[in-house]
Amino acid sequence: MAGEEYRKPLPQPSETSRPFWQGTQARELRLQQCRDCGKRIFYPRAICPFCLSEHLDWVVATGKGKVYSYTVVRRAMHPAFQEDVPYVLAIVELDEGPRLTTNIVGVGPEDVRVDMPVQAAYDDVTPDITLLNFEPLLGPEMN
C-alpha cells in the first residue's frame, strides 16, 4: 500500500462499532452477544434487536463460516472497484449464526460455491482500517 492512496469507500467507525474494527486490526472477528437473551449480533448496535437490551458484550468469534450466497461483480459501480473486476461479493453465514457482506479472496471467482466453508482473511487497506474478507477454509475441515 506504501505511497498509494486507497480510493475505495472506507468504513467510518462509530463509538458503537469501533471495537469491531479494532478487532479486525488485531486479526479477530468480534461479534456482540446480548447479556440478556444470549443472541449473537452483527452488525454492531447499541441495542439488542432481539430483546432491546442495552447490555451487549463483545466476544471473539471463530472466524469460520460458509458462503451463504455470492455473486461475481463484472461491472463495478464505484470507479475505484473497476480495476478489481471480476471480483466476488458474498454473504457469509458465520458458525455463530450472524450473516455479513464481504469479499471472497484467495480463490478464482469460478471456484466459489454456495455452502463452501470459509475463514476470515484480513486486509489492512489503510493504517486505520482493516477490512474483513473471507478465503477458502484451509486445514483438516476440507477433507
Partner: peptide, 9 residues
Amino acid sequence: EFEVPYGPM
C-alpha cells in the same frame, strides 16, 4: 459501513 466498502453494484 458494512456493505459499501466491499463493492456492491
